Simulated scan of single mutants.
Amino acid sequence: MAKPMTKTQLVAALAEEMGTDKKAANSALEAMTGLITREVSAGGAVTLPGVGKIYCRERPERMVRNPATGEQFKKEADKVVKMTIAKALKDSVNG
């Protein structure tokens, strides 16, 4: 498996793709990250065309088990961020 792209590499690739400098590409990436964070934190969802949909889902209160001790305890309800991958991306990876 290939190593994941770092933020520096992502900014450089984005700058090249946009035909601009790294500072502008970094600003665009930061703005997009902030926008997604705010929207999902508020309970909304963000669809990135061709990539997928990022959303927040609530998990109910449930019983869980500590694997080390076998002890069961109640875990409070919480929220988890999920992502559904777009069919176009799945097809490009598998095709």
Rank of each mutant, 00 (worst) to 15 (best):
R65S: 08
F73W: 10
G50R: 04
A15E: 09
V51I: 15
V80K: 15
M1W: 03
M32Y: 13
C56I: 09
P4L: 09
E39G: 02
V46L: 10
G44M: 06
A31Y: 08
R38E: 15
Q9V: 03
R62M: 07
A45Y: 06
K7F: 03
K87Y: 00
T33V: 15
T47Q: 13
A15M: 04
E39I: 14
K23Y: 02
L89A: 13
G50C: 00
L48G: 02
R38P: 08
A68R: 15
R57Q: 14
A25W: 01
S27L: 13
R65H: 07
V80N: 07
T20L: 03
K74Y: 00
E16F: 02
L10I: 08
V81N: 10
F73N: 00
I85Y: 00
N66K: 07
I54S: 04
V80A: 14
E39R: 12
G70D: 10
A12Y: 01
A2R: 13
A15H: 12
T33E: 14
T47N: 05
K75Y: 11
L35N: 10
R57A: 12
A25P: 05
R65C: 09
R59V: 01
D91E: 15
A12S: 07
S27E: 12
K22Y: 05
T33S: 10
A13G: 12
A68H: 12
V51T: 02
A68C: 04
A77N: 09
A28K: 03
P4D: 08
G70C: 08
E76T: 13
A42L: 03
L35Q: 11
K90G: 08
K79C: 12
G34N: 13
T6Q: 05
A24R: 14
D78Y: 14
N26C: 04
V93P: 03
V93G: 15
K74H: 00
G70P: 02
M5K: 06
K53M: 11
E17S: 13
I36G: 06
L48Y: 05
T84I: 01
K53D: 06
G50V: 10
L89E: 06
K79D: 06
A88D: 12
G70M: 10
M18D: 02
M18I: 11
I54M: 07
A86N: 09
L10E: 04
E58V: 06
K87T: 14
T47C: 01
V93D: 08
T6F: 04
A45V: 06
L35M: 12
K75L: 15
E30Q: 08
V11W: 07
M5W: 08
